[in-house]
């Protein structure tokens, strides 16, 4: 196997790893703030690694440029959108999960 294939495989695995982490976080974490934390980081990195993998796999200049542009857009748009979501939730007084919620056994 060529070294390029290994790099692509590794990057694709990284993408998959962060996406799975994001999904697990979205499913397991208790409130919108912690979920947003899991999803933003995982999504940006997941999509980012996938795009780098695509750029390496195809290798042509136009593919690399397009992947770089997409990476820039995802890098800006994704965290911004989640930031606005969380800010809206906070301004509408969506309650923050605390350890006392956990001890009382309440669903947030």
């Amino acid at each position: 196997m060529s070294i390029e294939l290994w790099i692509v495989g590794l990057l694709a695995f990284g993408s998959l790893f962060f996406t799975v982490v994001g999904v697990v976080g979205l499913y397991r974490l208790p409130d919108i703030y912690t979920r947003a934390h899991a999803v933003t980081k995982a999504d940006t990195l997941g999509a980012g690694f996938a795009l780098v993998a695509v750029a390496v796999a195809i290798g042509s200049t136009s593919a690399v440029l397009k992947a770089a542009l997409l990476f820039a857009i995802v890098f800006v748009a994704n965290p911004t959108a989640v930031h606005l979501l969380v800010r809206a939730a906070y301004s509408r007084d969506v309650s923050v999960w605390t350890t006392t919620d956990h001890q009382q056994g309440e669903q947030p």
């Binding site: 930031h83 606005l84 800010r87």
Partner: peptide, 14 residues
């Protein structure tokens, strides 16, 4: 609306 400096900056960019 949720006026957010992060949102307005990103949107100005995009």
């Amino acid at each position: 609306y949720v006026m957010s400096p992060v949102g307005t900056t990103a949107v100005r960019l995009v």
